[in-house]
């Protein structure tokens, strides 16, 4: 396969950045998208040029580190698939592929296709946890959890924190990411004690980090590589409304 790649190159955060065009002649259809970039980088290094920096680690679709915006879509055209699991057989010989980094004010570009997603960690620090110290937990079977709720909590917890939802959203909103964590913990009995403060704090932090608000457009759900449903955003909205209208203690 012959592929023309238009790749965003940006030296560092201050650099304005630009596109470079590369020709790849020997792309194999069984290659993954990232393996194609390995081949490109190999070629660039041999030519004495700077290889393209991109984030990746597990290459099996679970660590959430890979993050390419491919032909206008986060993680490319295939539904429910991360960039590392996207294979070249989904492209045609002679295709031109445009690759950009995630773009959002809250995800500044570090270099080329590498962006800083530490905002997600800070949102988690704002409340994405249950405050329980090691050693003090009751027996795991002491509190039964309805299977349906446990399954729903798992579906929310399947989020890999890659940021595709932000990259896809017109508003660069992180609501799908934030709501998945809020929903997971709100569905479980263990998450009840901090339920109200959690939703308020996490959403406040999301705002502080510079993510937009949700307009229920649905791009996030369509592009999420783990297919986290947008219904969790509605769930988080309800949690927010409850926390705001019915605080537990008089202020």
């Amino acid at each position: 396969m012959h592929i023309t790649l238009k790749v965003w190159r940006q030296k560092n955060q201050q650099d304005r950045g630009h596109f470079e065009t590369y020709q790849l002649d020997q792309v194999n259809e069984d290659m993954s998208f990232l393996e194609m970039f390995d081949v490109l980088n190999d070629q660039l290094i041999r030519e004495g040029k700077d290889p393209v920096a991109f984030d990746h680690d597990c290459r099996e679709g679970i660590c959430g580190m890979c993050s390419m915006y491919i032909n206008g879509r986060p993680h490319g055209p295939l539904k429910g698939t991360t960039t590392c699991q996207l294979h070249m057989r989904h492209f045609k010989d002679g295709d031109t592929i445009v690759v950009e980094p995630w773009r959002a004010a809250a995800f500044p570009v570090i270099k080329d296709l590498v962006v800083d997603r530490s905002a997600f960690d800070r949102i988690m620090q704002a409340g994405g946890f249950i405050s329980v110290n090691t050693g003090s937990a009751p027996d795991a079977n002491a509190i039964p959890v309805e299977k349906d709720k446990a399954d729903a909590a798992f579906a929310a917890a399947a989020c890999i924190g890659c940021g595709a939802c932000v990259a896809a959203c017109k508003n660069s909103s992180a609501m799908l990411f934030v709501s998945a964590k809020i929903a997971q913990l709100a569905l479980l009995p263990q998450g009840q004690p901090e339920r109200k403060t959690r939703v308020l704090n996490m959403i406040a932090q999301m705002d502080k980090e510079g993510f937009g608000s949700c307009s229920n457009i649905g791009s996030c759900e369509a592009e999420c590589p783990k297919e986290i449903p947008i219904t969790f955003i509605a769930k988080a909205n309800r949690e927010y409304l409850q926390a705001m209208l019915a605080p537990d203690l008089p202020e």
Binding site: F129, I130, V132, S136, A137, P138, A140, I143, P144, V145, E146, K147, A150, D151, A153, F154, A157, Q184, L185, L188, Q190, G191
Partner: peptide, 9 residues
Amino acid sequence: VALGVPFAR
């Protein structure tokens, strides 16, 4: 479980 890990049930 106390940390909110959604094990299969």
